[in-house]
Structure formats: structure tokens, C-alpha cells
Design a protein around this nucleic acid. Structure first.
Lengths: 223, 223
DNA sequence: AAAATTTGTATCTAAATTGTAACAACAATG
DNA sequence: CATTGTTGTTACAATTTAGATACAAATTTT
């Protein structure tokens, strides 16, 4: 379930957005000022934030500073259409902005685009006869289910999202463990090993010596 | 140099964009209709396309179909501001759109954002039929993969980035080993030798006696 | 709380990379 | 043409890195 946080103090607009996004299959949460937003963001993970600029207590741009560190995409809503405001929105790190009044169908289009861009709307990942449904924590090989643990699936998904790209050990570590990589640790190698075994991915997961790993879908190379 | 293709039939607008993007340090190419655009795209690689929707011969949406396969980000320019057109632009795969008349500073902001989003990895280095993809730790010769170790690739990249320039042993040592060069060590020679062997670079890596090495793309000799 | 599962560590082995040593081949110089 | 210093070659050793196995710690489920 993709979760969207709507930060908008005008209830009619907030309700309109929530109604439409819910209908489109997203999970919505509404808050009505910037402080509430900051609080709920601390405790819960969202995939996208729709953020009104004019808010009580904390304005949208200030809140944006905080959100930026969370790396959640933001679509700004603004009544202002002055050039400075549009620029401010874009340069503050928002993914997109909409000027009120807006058509709800356009908002939906933008939501989809931003989510697709961020790959949150993750369909199934595919590689050869392997299908990984990240949202449902399921993996099949040739139609038969293969049981992976959460960490294993995370690693597999990272590899599958980056087919034919060499993933450096440092990057994998950072993305999956959120930690610094240290040479002494055999953790990553071990997980790779487990994936190779469970999915019979022998040489499809190539080891790039001293560098990292790469999931390769062909034996030929084209750069 | 980041290269931007401007597809816009109204010359004043085209010139305005080109002037500003050039000033901002981008390499610009202007074409004035969709066919020209398709032709130039076939032969050259661009990092971003700015595309007017209303064009002679082929309209922007049709061209978009073709561009999509190239995976180059596109910013649409459109005089129309009808909802349908905006949606059509966004859903056809464009990264962004601007409605004319627009402020040039906003276009610049969007260009920066789109490029940052796509953050094209440093392109591949090329020499004859050898392609070195440093970010992916991969090298091909005539399309076939050649496996190089990290040190070897570092050295190759240094040579390839300095084609036809004689690299002094001291400089190579400093750049790759971060250390003082000493005459007794055969380390550098050995790595050169390994590159020559793996990539069949016999006389392309020229030895400059008592000085260093040079990767040369001609067979003639120049001082 | 106990059991089961997941995740990470320790340790050993195997393999690859990298550099050194010894020597051969070569170019430049007088 | 012999000398000298420089580069090429080969073999190999040292070091670093990855794979494997067993097991311990942590987490989740029952």
C-alpha cells in the first residue's frame, strides 16, 4: 500500500484530494498544519507528501527543510503563482508543484509520475524466470515460490533494479544496512551467497573482485 | 560537457533559450522541426531535449514516442495551456513541461533539476574499439568484455583520458599509487604490460624512453 | 518464555590481485 | 661495440579479498 500524506489546512480541499487519491488506491493521511505534519513524519513512513505552502505555525518551505532529510518526494500546492514562489518550490527540493485552483485529474497524473520516478509504485521486478513482488514480500522462480527473508529480498530487489550495473560494496551497504562498509565483515558476501543458493543464481550474480556485485542478464556485453 | 538539443521552430525563442543555456555552460544544438530532430538524434547523443509541441512535419508528441526509446529526458514547451495538453505531455513520458510564455530563469531551474535527477554517470571512455566504463568497472574491446582489475582499469582510464599526451612516470605513480616514483620498481611497467596483453594494445601504448608512456591513436609519430 | 527464524560474526580455505626479485632485452652514448 | 641505465618478461611471494561453514546473537513467532 502506497501511503500519501496530505498537508493542507483548508478542509474542503484536503477532503477532495483524499477522496480522489483513496479512490485511486492510495492510503491517505491528512494533517492540517505543519507541526502535525512534522510529528507524524517522525513516527511513520510515507511514500509521497502533498504539501500546501500556506500553513499555520510552520510554512511549507520551512517544513520542506525537514522533509528533505527524509528523502520523501513532495508535491507543492500553492495559491500563489508568482515566479518567485514557483522557483522557491522547485529549488527547495520539491519534485513538483501545482498552482491552486487545480484540476484533480492533473494532480493524480503528477502523483503517478512522481511515484513512478521514485519507483515506489513498484510493480514486480523481473529477471529471467524470477519475479520479485517487493510489496508483498514474495518471490517466484519459474512460477514456484521461493521463500526469502526480508534482508535477502531487499538485496535481491536492489540487484534487480540495477541489472547490468555494477553495484559497489559501499553503495550496497549504505542502501541496505544504512551503514559504513568495512572490509572485515563477511555479511554482504554471505547474503549474496544465500541468494545464489536459494535462487540458483550461480553466475548471474557476478562478483566484481574488489569492487562489488552485478546482476547480469546476458552473457554478452554492451556498454 | 552536457549537451542539450533544442527543438523549436520559432527562431527568436530558440535563440533566447540557446543563449541562456550556453551562458549557463551547456552545449546547445538547435533544430527547427521534428524531422531534423529525429535525424540528429540518430547520430548524436544528447543529455536533455527541450521540445516544442507545435512543430512542422512531426509534432512533439509523435517525436516523443521515438525519444522515449532513447531514454533521454525531455522538457516540453507548449503554448497551449489546456488541461488535456498538459496531461498529454506528462503522460507521454516527458520529465517536465513549461507553458509559453515562460520565464527563462524558470526554464533554467527545471533544466538543472531534470539533469540532477538523471545524473548521467560519467560517460564511457573510448579508444579505438575499446570502451571503458569506469563507474561499472567494465571494459570491452570490440564488444567483448575484458576483465580488468581495479588498478589496471585506473591506469587504463588515466591513459585514455590523456590520449596522445605523454604521461611522465612520476605523474602516473602519483595519480595511481599516490606515492613517490622510484626507478628500481618494475610495478608500473608490469601494469602497462598487463594492459598491453589483455587489450592487445601492443604499440598503441607507446613507451617514451626515460620519460613515461603515451596512448596514441595514430600510427604516425609526433613529438 | 520457548521455539523458530533471521541475521550477523568468527574462522578457515580458496582465489585473485598486486608487487618484488631476478634476469633478459633493448636503447642511447661515448 | 661495449657500457650503462632503462624497460620487458617471467616466476613467484605477499597480501588482499571472496566463498564456505559453523555457530552465536538478535529478532520474531508461537
Amino acid at each position: 500500500m502506497i501511503r500519501i500524506l496530505i498537508v493542507e489546512d483548508e478542509k474542503p480541499i484536503s477532503d477532495l484530494i483524499r477522496w480522489n487519491l483513496t479512490k485511486a488506491g492510495y492510503g491517505c493521511t491528512c494533517v492540517y498544519d505543519g507541526l502535525e505534519a512534522a510529528n507524524i513524519l517522525e513516527n511513520q513512513g510515507f511514500d509521497l507528501i502533498i504539501l500546501d505552502v500556506m500553513l499555520p505555525h510552520i510554512n511549507g518551505y520551512e517544513l520542506m527543510e525537514y522533509i528533505r532529510s527524509l528523502e520523501i518526494p513532495v508535491i507543492f500546492l500553492t495559491a500563489k503563482s508568482s515566479l518567485e514562489d514557483r522557483l522557491k518550490g522547485l529549488t527547495s527540493g520539491a519534485e513538483d508543484y501545482m498552482v491552486k485552483p487545480f484540476e484533480i485529474v492533473e494532480l493524480l497524473a503528477r502523483v503517478n509520475i512522481v511515484l513512478r520516478r521514485y519507483r515506489k509504485a513498484e510493480q514486480c521486478l523481473k529477471f529471467r524466470d524470477i519475479v520479485a513482488d517487493v510489496d508483498n514480500q514474495r518471490v517466484t522462480k519459474a512460477g514456484k515460490e521461493v521463500v526469502l527473508t526480508p534482508k535477502e529480498l531487499e538485496l535481491l530487489a536492489l540487484l534487480m533494479r540495477n541489472q547490468n550495473i555494477t553495484l559497489f560494496r559501499e553503495r550496497i551497504y549504505e542502501e541496505i544496512w544504512g551503514a559504513e562498509y568495512s572490509v572485515e565483515s563477511r555479511t554482504l558476501d554471505l547474503h549474496i551467497q544465500r541468494l545464489r543458493r536459494k535462487l540458483e543464481l550461480g553466475n548471474a550474480i557476478k562478483t566484481v573482485f574488489k569492487v562489488g556485485y552485478r546482476l547480469e542478464d546476458t552473457d554478452e556485453v554492451s556498454i
